[in-house]
Design a protein around this nucleic acid. Structure first.
Lengths: 336, 336
DNA sequence: CTCGTGTATTGAGTCGTTTCAATCTGCGGC
DNA sequence: GCCGCAGATTGAAACGACTCAATACACGAG
């Protein structure tokens, strides 16, 4: 199984390598008869372009990298789909990396993408990666955080106002008369989590009779949610919060499973529950889940847009921070 | 922003390019003092290896490609996570491509992966790709279908016995006394769908009083399921099936939403409902969803295993077909 | 002082594609 | 028959890391 290169195609078609390259990339520049002959040679030999070689020559690849916190979270796959669609319009491929809330994996993906000389990097950051991204960009790889980088105007970014979202959620819980709210989420180092908590704190401050308890988790998964739910269920009802605001829907669904599967804690009667992200499964949950909606696909779409602008813009380029507003979706889990 | 190459690092460190390469790849072969000097030069210049160049030389990349039918389906992200973990153990990267049940995109990803000279390709195929995969392999890219390639022993493959799964589901519906079963799924060209239907047909044949209606969908999404659910709801109750077997959980959840959101068709009293895949959200559905469980992460894990064996095995290599058995999970949606 | 041994380092050649200045070809106009 | 022009084709150089045969060097033994 000899590896076939342009050279062999050229020989077989009786033309030069330059012509083969032209057939591949600019068929218009080559006479129809020659195109025909070259095409025949290509399929006869089963020639497949070597991407590494063309990229080496080109200096940069035709793909963009996206690092997300958790591929198992539908919110991020939605973002990825939006990004992929927009990228495809430009003939770019999306490479999806899953940091899985692990800082080493996040770092490994950034390394990988840089070595691959990707067109640009989109990242939903786990920790403090500002410096890292600066360096990346300085070496020529534009970067767009999909996140709220407070007060950092040196990047373009796309984000949802998570403080506002957190406020919406907690305010809603207060508005239906709940007074002991628990915020469930972690890691605190994830800005989305910190901001949602901050928003909730602000809302609670506006209601003197409402208190906020913070329950930290190790990750934002269904499993962690179930774990917290079980702890809540085990508590004396007097000590139990009457409302839970989970930092995302996965956690909320986990909490919901633990509370209501065994039927002794009723949602929303005993505990009202609200999540965040409004994933497709929230509406179909055992108790349809109230949530904070984010335009996930649009976020991905916009992030790629910004990245492209960033890549073409010159030195005096003005970075754009786009921020979407979250939206409260009320369902049964916070009814009454 | 000059692009730094090994040559410049070598110059700065006062050594040859060969030595720099050795520091990068076989630090043991180089004296500690030299390693030190080279490392310093590398970080001073911000040198980043050019992956394209090394791959060109190496002939093959350190990644494997995975093409799935739908990233938005948690089943596939679970498979991907399993595959990624196993790949990471070998120092390989997983590239995730989403065909989105679109044959052109599937084809485009196969092209892309071949051009990238990936280590191997894992694919959950949409249509008939046997020929395509044969060619791929003939040119040196091993391939493992994550699918049941009936009677094709020329590939290693990993799959779940979908006929058995379909049988389990339909048999279960019959066993709880349902007689008018509707199978909801499509496209028929997807082997998983066809096999599940076939299994259901077999089960129904064993029960003379049970009938099977087939409702085709255009894809396997929540939206399509909701669409079908609305049609069912609109039917005269006499014409309505008393059980629905959906080809996957997304469809089932869609059907469930349409039937029960408006409260006039009760699940399982009026219509029993069973899905397939047992995704994490099935257990948390508004009516906890019965389903057919598949060991998703293990599937991904095993697929990578097989791929690695395929890649190292010689010509007399015996392809292995691994088939997992599905498992019935009964929840409320088929209670009574 | 020479030889042998083993370790450290060198650097030209290679991978396959693209680019682009140079060359070729055919043809109409004069 | 010659000139000029446009379109088609050519082929060598370049991209950057890796390999490996060759070389340099150090040191101990004889």
């Amino acid at each position: 199984m000899a590896t076939v290169s342009v050279r062999e195609v050229a020989a077989r078609a009786g033309v030069s390598v330059g012509t083969v390259s032209n057939v591949l990339n600019r068929p218009g520049k080559v006479s129809p008869a020659t195109v025909e002959r070259v095409q025949t040679a290509i399929s006869a030999l089963g020639f497949v372009r070597n991407d590494a070689a063309r990229r080496l020559r080109a200096g940069r690849s035709r793909s963009i990298g996206l690092v997300v916190l958790d591929v198992a979270n539908p919110f991020f796959t939605d973002v990825a789909c939006g990004a992929e669609d927009r990228a495809a319009e430009e003939g770019l491929t999306l490479l999806l990396g899953n940091s899985d809330e692990n800082i080493d994996r996040e770092s490994a993906y950034l390394d990988l993408f840089e070595e691959q000389r990707v067109h640009g990097v989109l990242i939903s950051p786990l920790g403090e990666v500002g410096d890292r991204l600066m360096r990346l960009r300085a070496r020529g790889t534009p970067t767009v955080p999909v996140d709220r980088q407070t007060a950092v105007h040196s990047f373009s970014s796309v984000a949802v106002d998570d403080v506002a979202g957190g406020h919406l959620a907690a305010e809603h819980l207060a508005s239906i008369g709940r007074t002991r709210i628990a915020f469930v989420g972690g890691l605190q180092s994830i800005r989305q989590v910190a901001d949602r908590l901050e928003g909730a704190r602000q809302a609670v401050r506006e209601h003197p009779n409402v208190s906020l308890e913070v329950i930290s988790t190790e990750s934002l998964s269904v499993l962690q949610g179930r774990f917290v739910g079980e702890q809540l269920r085990a508590r004396d009802p007097v000590d139990r919060p009457d409302a839970v605001f989970a930092a995302n829907d996965l956690l909320a669904i986990g909490v919901l499973q633990a509370l209501s599967m065994l039927g002794d804690v009723r949602v929303p009667e005993d505990v009202a529950l609200i999540g965040y992200d409004d994933i497709a499964f929230a509406a179909a949950a055992i108790v349809p889940l109230s949530s904070i909606h984010q335009p996930s696909a649009l976020i991905g779409h916009t992030a790629v847009d910004l990245l492209l602008r960033e890549a073409t813009g010159g030195d005096d380029f003005v970075h754009e921070q786009i921020e979407f507003q979250p939206e409260l979706i009320v369902r049964e889990s916070t009814a009454g």
